[in-house]
Design a protein around this nucleic acid. Structure first.
Lengths: 337, 337
DNA sequence: TTGTAAGCGTTATCAG
DNA sequence: CTGATAACGCTTACAA
């Protein structure tokens, strides 16, 4: 079938060892020899067998990206940026979805699929209580994490507390007092980002001596539809909020739609603010706090590579990098009337 | 480091060959033996070394998904569905972006990264003239394609001609005569789907004896912003269209925004129709022709697996599967006034 | 049904 | 700087 390193060695008149060294750019190879080998290899259209190389070297040349979702905006954007980093580094990227951890779907545990198969793992936004998280981390291999924090793991995040504070403070600044919080789900099953954002919101409310009416905490499940029905519920209350802090733009979209459906105008009748700066946000005039999604992926990818190459220690000593967020004011928010 | 098949064999009191057979579920193994081996393996926490297995067997147990984009709606949705098929089949999924083929970015040719590395290739929407396409196809390995047609390759598509016809006919049905076509880009650099959709549009116009004003063909590059400026250009003309057929929903979103910006109401002043049924479409009231994106990915994934397992021949004999589309009427279209 | 043993194509360790 | 030559861990005829 394929042509092997031995064929190249024979054709170049050297040993397989020399071919291996020459092709991989290792030192201690004569320039002339190296060139000849390369030429012969190209001529023969030789490509190395990854399986053999991996078996012999112990390195797989690939990493796994583990995510709970693939097609959602945040995740696909992260995956895309990680892919570009890995492609440039010559690494293969294995995509592994751990499925909807909400319902008890027949989820295939990722751990066995990870061992002996990849050199590193990039975890995207697995909530701390995810049953797959702990087993993955105890694999003890180079690992990086996006959108979450775990001990002894290299993490790349935004400051979710600060992001939530920016959003909340802006609403307060506009004079709002009855502010609703639209979270994803109940406190037991939250992403790290969710808990942090709640903390940020909470701290602003407290600082400004505003009461958090339990009736004003609703769940939108990070989807448009969820946001819409959550807003519906809010509007059906006897004493609706004058502003809503949604933990994601997509939920905010749903909230806006609900508003319109009820004949209300976002920013005039009720203010809506989100977090993300989703591409559709500028389109819909949604005020939001932007997060640098691609940068999260790029930085985490690079940090992971650092661990694999050995510059960094596995887990990167648990270093946490925080990337900046920014309040982006549009028309969905306005002063309390 | 790791524990090997030999350890399992020793612990179970059998040969490595038997362990191999037992664990892979091959026939000709005594049930009792098989159970014991499995138990010992589990006990020892043994996981097979993919590299060794691949080297010995020649199969890699992985496939590559090749796409020009990752984060765009259509692509991420397809990737997600393919991933679920592959995960259930126990196959690894390598993600390979071939970069923006528009600009002359330093694109890494995928072919060398494919040979000896995967058992099959799933190509998503590479335009026929893409420089990477031909080399990939001549690899001669199991291949499937989504959103495009190539000779001797198993293809899964929607009937783009028919989809475009549905959209166009609906506009004609509403009484429109000056209908603009919003394509992605000029005819030289088109996806297969693009050309087909143009054909569909064209045939409807011809059939109804409507003239296609060259001024009414604009390019929106399949983005919101592109769609917006394309619509701007249309509106700035002395004789604007009364309806627009956009080849994708995202471009249609941009068109709607442009309309609003100009104080016009979609569906009343000017009708807009798209193709996709993007999640935001129902939100924005966009009339569109839906395509079953997940189904495309699932079917193509299954067909690819069929080729790999050997049920089908490589390329699947060039079979083409067409999945159904459906006109979804919302508020962005209305009768010509 | 089970065991033996020869590969699979590299890499890496030593010599030279 | 280069060449032998053991691994690497599994699969798979071929025997038994």
């Amino acid at each position: 079938m394929g042509i092997t390193i031995r064929d190249v060695a024979a054709a170049a008149g050297v040993s397989t060892a020399t071919v291996s060294r020459a092709l991989r750019g290792l030192p201690n190879v004569d320039q002339v020899t190296r060139e000849r080998v390369k030429e012969v290899a190209a001529c023969l259209d030789y490509v190395i067998s990854p399986s053999a190389s991996r078996l012999a070297s112990g390195r797989t040349g690939s990493i796994a990206v583990i995510t709970p979702y693939i097609a959602r905006w945040f995740f696909s954007e992260v995956i895309a940026s990680v892919e570009s980093v890995m492609q440039q580094a010559g690494m293969d990227l294995l995509l592994m979805n751990v499925g909807d951890y909400q319902n008890g779907h027949a989820r295939i545990p990722p751990t066995p699929r990870l061992r002996r198969r990849v050199d590193g793992i990039l975890i995207v936004s697995l909530p701390p209580q995810d049953p797959d998280l702990e087993p993955i981390l105890s694999l003890g291999m180079p690992t990086a994490m996006i959108g979450g924090i775990a001990p002894d793991v290299e993490c790349v995040v935004i400051d979710d507390v600060a992001a939530a504070r920016k959003a909340s403070e802006y609403l307060v600044f506009l004079g709002h007092e009855r502010i609703a919080l639209m979270a994803g789900g109940p406190a037991e099953a939250r992403f790290t980002a969710e808990s942090q954002r709640e903390r940020g919101f909470h701290s602003v409310m407290t600082q400004n001596s505003l009461v958090e009416d339990p009736m004003l905490e609703v769940f939108g499940h990070f989807t448009i539809e969820g946001g819409e029905s959550a807003m519906d519920a809010l509007l059906n209350q006897s004493n609706p909020p004058t502003a809503v802090f949604a933990m994601s733009d997509e939920m905010a979209f749903g909230a806006i739609r609900s508003l319109r459906k009820h004949g209300l105008e976002p920013g005039r009748d009720i203010s809506i603010i989100g977090i993300d700066n989703h591409p559709m946000s500028s389109y819909l005039g949604l005020t939001t706090v932007s997060q640098p999604v691609s940068e999260l992926g790029i930085k985490a990818g690079e940090r992971l590579l650092g661990q694999i190459v050995g510059i960094d220690s596995p887990g990167g000593n648990g270093r946490v990098s925080e990337l900046p967020t920014e309040l982006i004011i549009r028309s969905s928010t306005g002063p309390k009337t």
